Simulated assay, not measured.
Amino acid sequence: MVRQPADPEADDLVLSVTTARPVPLTPDIVLRTADDVIPLWERTGTPEPPFWAFPWAGGQALARYVLDHPELVAGRRVLDLASGSGLVAVAAARAGGRVTANDVDPVATAAIALNARANDVTVTITPGDLLDTEPDTDVLLAGDVFYDRDMAARVEPFLLAAHRRGALVLVGDPQRSFMPKGWTRVDAFEVPVPRHLEGVTVKTTTVWRP
């Protein structure tokens, strides 16, 4: 596993607020998971929720799909964009991909490293914003990235650019309002989710490609 730069404070935060638990839709993967989003969000004081602390529905569906179809990633360069906890990256590595996980949140990079280690897989972690760069990968995976208008407006062009360059692009989306129109349905899952995150206990979540 590779992670740069190291951040002991971020590691300590993740370890202090999460426990290792099986992911509902991919129980062979263990993820460091928090109990409740609101107190943790207040503690971190960030504008975005702590995406790194929960197995969100889009990531669960995409991870399940990759594990069910390992031939899509095996031996290929895989980028997990906006990786959060690293769930999709771990699944892709488990399926034989050469995986890079990316996130702008330094706490997320710590969580990705800890979760990769817990699942005994190798994931290269690239921090920072990649959305203004040229995507260069064989497979681009993105779980639950269309959660608001601004993010959707930035992410879709990056995903479509990767598609035009020949990458396999797959998105997991649990019926978010800003999922673009015109994408092709690949599969769908009934994903168990915490009620405190989604207001329900199951979310119908679709895997899409351009």
Rank of each mutant, 00 (worst) to 15 (best):
M179V: 10
R21G: 01
H196D: 15
T18I: 13
A82K: 01
D35H: 14
V88I: 05
T122D: 12
P47N: 15
L81E: 13
E134L: 02
T46Y: 14
A34G: 15
G84H: 00
D105Y: 05
P70Q: 01
V2E: 11
P135T: 08
E190T: 12
Y65E: 05
E190W: 09
R154K: 06
R117Q: 13
R176N: 15
A118N: 10
L25E: 13
L79N: 11
H69F: 06
L114I: 15
V78F: 04
V37Y: 01
I112D: 07
P135I: 09
T44Q: 14
D129M: 00
G59E: 03
V200G: 01
V123D: 06
R209N: 08
V155Q: 03
P27D: 07
V78E: 07
A34T: 14
D173W: 12
Y65Q: 07
V121D: 00
S85A: 04
V104M: 14
R43Y: 15
D80F: 12
A34H: 13
D129L: 02
T33I: 02
E134Y: 01
I112M: 13
T133I: 02
S16Q: 03
P5C: 10
D136Q: 15
D187R: 08
K181D: 15
G86W: 00
A111H: 13
V121C: 03
R154F: 04
D132Q: 14
D80P: 14
E134G: 03
G96L: 05
D12E: 13
F54K: 05
T133Y: 03
P135H: 10
G59K: 03
P22E: 00
V66N: 07
T137E: 12
G166D: 06
D173K: 14
R76G: 06
R149A: 15
A162T: 08
T19N: 01
D173T: 14
T133A: 12
D132Y: 09
V145D: 03
G97T: 04
T26R: 06
F146L: 10
T109M: 02
E156F: 11
A101G: 09
I125G: 03
L15S: 07
E190H: 13
V121W: 01
D138T: 14
R64G: 07
R64T: 04
D148L: 05
M151A: 14
A95C: 04
A113T: 10
P210D: 07
L62H: 07
P157H: 05
L81D: 12
F178Y: 15
G182M: 12
V14G: 13
M151I: 07
L170P: 12
P194K: 15
F51G: 02
D148A: 02
D138G: 15
P5I: 09
T109Q: 07
D120W: 06
L67N: 01
R149P: 08
G75E: 10
A162K: 08
E190F: 02
L79D: 12
L159M: 06
P127R: 03
T44H: 10
A63P: 03
A20C: 09
H196Q: 15
A63F: 00
V90R: 01
M1L: 12
Q4M: 11
D144W: 04
H163P: 05
I125M: 03
A188D: 11
A142P: 11
T122H: 07
Y65P: 06
V155I: 08
P8Y: 11
N102V: 08
P39M: 14
S85C: 02
A93F: 06
R185I: 10
G97P: 05
